[in-house]
Design a protein around this nucleic acid. Structure first.
Lengths: 262, 262
DNA sequence: CAGCTTATGTGCGACAACACACAGAGCGAT
DNA sequence: ATCGCTCTGTGTGTTGTCGCACATAAGCTG
């Protein structure tokens, strides 16, 4: 098959489930203010304690939210991809959070400047309802992460992590070193090595110098702890109304500014 | 000192910080629909998957939110006392959550039936803003729990847990067995025994058959992990506007129905 | 007080994850 | 080809928590 040109993606706001679920009139108000942003791997979207200037709606990128301890240890508590948005703080009223956000899989996101977010939010319409539902799904994911951290092995958590990531991508490979995964899960690099080896020996994934390919997704789900399924089901319930996704009226009319992040 | 009559508490909606922060006109709309409920120790407020009929505003009670795994293991991810409310699900749009709520310290709470909650919420006024802020503080607590579960020892987590509980009480003692704490923290009872022994030997607490007394709170904070402080500070920032607490106009006018739960 | 129930303390082997140290492997650059 | 860097694999000993078994203690009931 011919290789696609990597320099010319065709991002579309509708690729983000939340944006796609908005009604045409809301879309027509918001979309003109969207900016397309490229998020390179490992980019720091925001640091603990700083305030965000935009809300980000990923299309094919994945961003992780992590808490960092005083001694430098960290743990990711949340994964955000095309199913959600980054920056609920802007809605919730707080100016910042004690977390930081790191791009876990490079890609694109649309972003909306703070003033437009607030303005639309204050209309108390569809966007508000969407955000509330999404926030609840988010809480479920964070809570399940807490439980998972308590009760499950590194092996299981790696499976869960891979699944969470795969669900937000359209292909079956990830670009991240074991060291990086270690930071995400809050475990040592060697622990990830061991777990990844087992998965390789089982023929579930292949792993080479930062490139992971998922070969047997069913088995991956099988090896994962229940946490993955619980969150997935709960999220499905909360965001069921999303399928009323509209078709785009005229996607080319949406002004698009390509930016680079840091 | 003369013992107070335990049968005649003088609960007041203003003891709950969220209710107290509402403006007089919102209070006058909501308070007539409040019911006073006594929450006995270990009462199940709601079970995973069921839908709540009320929102609860604790005054001197403490309720824990826990996730239960398939194998029966559980972990508490959140503590709710007079600083908050139980049942954000009702606001957020989901009908239920995969968690269950257990009374961790007996006491009272005011509850508001679902229809009145929704009605007031749909006014998009002060209650909405309050709930959003509180929800963000809640997310912070859950997230920090996830981090804590990953990185800190049982000893530290016990300290954190005791502090969280003490902050929501007006006295310095708790009624809960080590077995019960074990369920909360998601660890074995023996682990709690060991940790509690250390604290006793240090003269920080005394523990006897389900009755814990905190003797040296400063030392308890010292022994706890940073997670406690992080959440406390963040919550303080998010709920700073709360001190605009109003004085009660005429507390006796508020209809009070004393109920029993299960 | 005898006997029961519940709560707490203790001992021991198993195991997962840790910290640290180091060995090889892959890949690009000079 | 060689160097150097990054990423991955491996070994050893330590520690925290678990699972289980059992001993003691404190309070309730009759």
């Amino acid at each position: 098959m011919p290789p696609r040109s990597p320099a010319k993606p065709q991002p579309n706001p509708q690729q983000n489930h939340l944006l796609a679920a908005l009604s045409p009139d809301v879309q027509s108000r918001l979309f003109p203010h969207l900016e397309l942003v490229h998020l390179p791997l490992r980019a720091l979207m925001y640091e603990s304690g700083t305030s965000m200037s935009h809300v980000y709606f990923p299309t094919d990128s994945i961003v992780s939210l992590q808490y960092v301890m005083e001694n430098g240890a960290s743990t990711a508590i949340l994964v955000v991809g095309n199913e959600g948005l980054l920056g609920i703080t802007l809605f919730m009223g707080g100016e910042s959070t004690p977390s930081r956000s790191v791009v876990q899989s490079a890609g694109y996101a649309y972003r909306l400047p703070r003033p437009h977010v607030k303005e639309e939010f204050n209309r108390h319409g569809q966007l508000l309802l969407l955000m509330l539902r999404y926030t609840q799904a988010l809480i479920t994911q964070v809570a399940q992460t807490a439980v998972c951290n308590r009760h499950h092995s590194i092996d299981q958590q790696l499976c869960r992590w891979l699944l969470l990531s795969m669900d937000r991508l359209s292909h079956n490979h990830l670009t991240m070193t074991q060291e990086f995964i270690g930071h995400m899960l809050g475990v040592r690099r060697e622990g990830v090595t061991q777990a990844a080896l087992k998965l390789q020996q089982l023929g579930v994934i292949s792993y080479s110098r930062g490139l992971i390919k998922v070969i047997d997704r069913d088995e991956l789900e099988h090896l994962s702890c229940e946490c993955y399924e619980v969150v997935k089901k709960e999220t499905a319930i909360l965001l069921t109304y999303l399928p009323q996704r509209q078709l785009i009226k005229n996607p080319e009319d949406i002004p698009v500014v390509v930016l680079k992040t840091q």
